[in-house]
Design a protein around this nucleic acid. Structure first.
Length: 421
DNA sequence: TCTGGGGTCCTAGGACCC
DNA sequence: TCTGGGGTCCTAGGACCC
């Protein structure tokens, strides 16, 4: 059996854990630039707010009802996620991090039936006691069914946070009651197609023949079908080393000058490179993209991407930044108001120092050392303590808006919480 | 005025190879 | 009238996930 442990409305729960006065109150967390709602508690949902709502459109609902609003602070959430994960690893030996708020736990060898449910309930209580983060756990034979079970665990208080699907009878009942569009692997497109084909519940889908599923939904849909029928086939274990690394942002203010665009992508290149070195890899290809504001129909629209292959896979901030600045020359257009830009590293291979007979970069070892020194300094003294001048300062015009930011209580000694007694 | 960011996998089609 | 067979690699686009 496998369990999925899912933190309930995770970002909002972290904010609530660090602001105890908000217990039982509506809380929303915003995306970067304070753009959209990305996480919200059930109390906020009850007011009609939805994930994805643009903040400016629902501001009046928020103000009228005294909803607590926070700018998303990913560093803070990642730190809390590590705490939650460590408690899960104390409970079960083999775990797999699927996302910042979800873990798969392999339960083979931990007994059957009630034992498993009690084991997981104990873990949920421990996490609540030590971190104040509410967690729902689903247990079943496959990851897709475990996800279904975890949603039931979240929905019905009576489960004590843990729901198990351990018989065919329970599986069929669960699938007949579950929302088809909430099944892991069935997105809006497949949902519409299934509806048109007369399939409206997960059970009806599971009861179709394999050939039928293959004909209309090909391999991904077939895998979901197998999993719903209790045959495990989705492997999520190979996600440790990323195949692409992207850093991109929407700007707080639109920009038109080439220098601002260059500053933004140079800053993103640094961030991509330190992630790359952090997983001990090198990238063989660098891309830069930029686009205008798609919501401003009154302005000329433009978007483009340019890619360069590096002669040797590299993790050198200087080399990759130089490539990124060159690529800006290819995509920049005067007169366009840019709203967003980004850097993508791909063709990623293990090992950060590659050698080639005709390497255009001199003294590559020293360059690698320089980059690693940057990483160490920024790790010790805080992000962007040292960087390339071309990436500009923290006050650049393209920087984000973040008006409701919670301090980095868990990761920065200078921002640690003050307690008054 | 204000509309997120970062990933994966699959498939089809084109270009090229012998 | 009929016009090889069997591959690889790359790219773009679509669909999905959190």
């Amino acid at each position: 059996m496998i369990a999925l442990a899912d933190c309930n409305t995770f970002f909002a729960s972290v904010e609530r854990a660090l602001h105890p006065g908000l217990k039982g109150k509506p809380v929303c967390v915003l995306s970067s630039n304070d753009g959209n709602i990305v996480a919200l508690t059930s109390e906020a949902k009850a007011l009609g707010l939805r994930r994805g709502d643009p903040f400016f459109k629902v501001k009046d609902i928020i103000e009228r009802n005294g909803v607590a609003v926070f700018s998303g602070n990913l560093m803070l959430y990642a730190a809390m996620s590590r705490r939650v994960q460590s408690i899960m690893r104390r409970t079960v030996e083999r775990t797999e991090c699927y996302s910042i708020d979800e873990q798969f736990l392999y339960l083979d060898g931990y007994g059957k039936g009630c034992d498993l449910v009690e084991l997981m309930r104990g873990m949920v209580r421990q996490i609540a006691l030590w971190t104040d983060i509410p967690v729902s756990v689903g247990i079943a034979q496959t990851k897709t069914l475990a996800k279904v079970a975890s949603k039931f665990a979240k929905q019905y208080k009576g489960y004590g946070g843990v729901c198990m699907i351990d018989s065919d009878q329970k599986r069929r009942k669960a699938l007949s009651l579950f929302e088809l569009s909430d099944v892991w692997g069935i997105g809006p497109r497949s949902f519409a197609k299934l509806s048109a084909l007369g399939v409206t519940t997960p059970l009806q889908f599971a009861d179709k023949s394999g050939e039928w599923v293959m004909k209309y939904f090909h391999k991904p849909g077939y895998q979901t079908w197998l999993e719903l029928n209790g045959h495990p086939c989705i492997d999520t274990s190979e996600l440790i080393r990323r195949q692409t690394i992207t850093t991109s942002r929407s700007f707080g203010n639109m920009i038109s000058s080439k220098e601002d665009l260059k500053a933004s992508v140079a800053s993103f290149a640094s961030s991509c490179c330190s992630t790359l070195r952090g997983q001990d890899s090198a990238a063989g290809r660098v891309s830069v993209f930029a686009c205008s504001n798609r919501f401003r129909e009154d302005l000329p629209q433009y978007g483009n991407i340019a890619t360069r292959r590096l002669s040797v896979p590299s993790a050198d901030t200087l080399e990759i930044t130089a490539a990124v600045l060159d690529l800006v020359e290819e995509i920049y257009r005067p007169g366009i108001l840019f709203k967003k830009s980004g850097v993508i590293l791909s063709d990623i291979t293990p090992g950060c120092c590659h050698h080639l007979l005709f390497d255009p970069v001199q003294k590559r070892e020293e360059r690698v050392e320089l980059s690693e020194t940057l990483d160490r300094m920024n790790h010790k003294y805080g992000v962007r303590t040292v960087g390339l001048a071309v990436a500009g300062s923290d006050r650049e015009v393209w920087k984000n808006r973040k008006e409701h930011l919670t301090p980095n209580y868990l990761t920065d000694i200078d921002q640690i919480m003050t307690v008054k007694i």
